[in-house]
Design a binder for these strands. Structure first.
Lengths: 143, 143
DNA sequence: ATAGAAGCTAAAGTTAGGTTTAGGTCAAGA
DNA sequence: TCTTGACCTAAACCTAACTTTAGCTTCTAT
């Protein structure tokens, strides 16, 4: 199947300008053009977009993603490099999840803090509460 | 306790230039200066830095954090707004964690994909594997 | 008293990841 | 054929969050 840039933008939610930017950056090395010079997206590019989205949401930069996509063009010779890359990304994302969970607990503490302050009518009360009055699960996330 | 900008930078790992930038942005409205004009950080500012870090790692912009810090200066009158803010942040972070978990599963799929390709000596083999040969836990995360 | 480390400011520079603009060209229906 | 909506490029612009630079001042230890 073939798609125009507008169709791809519509289907994926990615702005047309972004798709052109990705192309300019060399993310779609094999994308074809019509005789008139109009981009023709194929399932190859749709798949590349899925990979881009995955890597981007793992925190990878456009530049590095581009590098990875170049490896894909090298065939089986680059399998090792590509494997390493995904394992490294996986570790990264696991760390990010842990960090976010820490953040989540701190936010939970603050939610409790403000809920309690509002119930008491003032912040002072909560500030002076002894530690054992703080719910156990968030006690260690006090800011 | 009082601290110089260098001490704070050292203790927190935040660059001196960043601390000055935060100050310029108005994040430390009550910070004092020595007679000579040198910044004097107190525990108030150290605490503010912890809040900044928490909110920043939840994805909040410096501008919004500054706004929140201004609310803090308004006393109990702004308790409601502050409470809402933290509850909204918490929801946001929960969504981010879910998104990252999705990303993690996609990366796991790719790790399996490349592990299998390398074991087989070629990518072609994995590409043509029937779906039921993909481990169950990642089957739905195929890209 | 003095040297040098640490601090200060204003303003310009940097980077990533796009978006916008201006000025055209292409393609499909009436 | 004509119109009009979709597409094209190059280049400039944008924003966030810092960092760097240049030139100057303050503080601390000898």
């Amino acid at each position: 199947m073939y798609y125009s840039i507008g169709e791809v933008a519509n289907a994926t939610g990615i702005a047309i300008s972004t798709l052109r930017y990705y192309d300019r950056e060399g993310m779609f090395p094999d994308m074809e053009r019509s005789n008139g010079g109009i981009r023709v997206f194929s399932d190859t590019e749709i798949n590349t977009l899925k990979v881009i989205e995955c890597l981007k949401s793992s925190g990878m930069s456009i530049k590095s993603i581009k590098e990875f996509l170049a490896w894909c063009g090298e065939g089986d010779a680059s399998l090792g490099k590509r494997r390493e890359m995904f394992h490294a990304r996986l570790e990264e994302v696991e760390k990010q999840i842990e960090a976010l969970q820490e953040t989540k607990n701190r936010l939970k503490y603050k939610c409790w803090y403000y809920d309690t302050a509002i119930a008491a009518g003032s912040e002072e009360v909560v500030k002076n509460l002894p530690v054992d009055e703080i719910p156990e699960d968030i006690r260690n996330y006090k800011i």
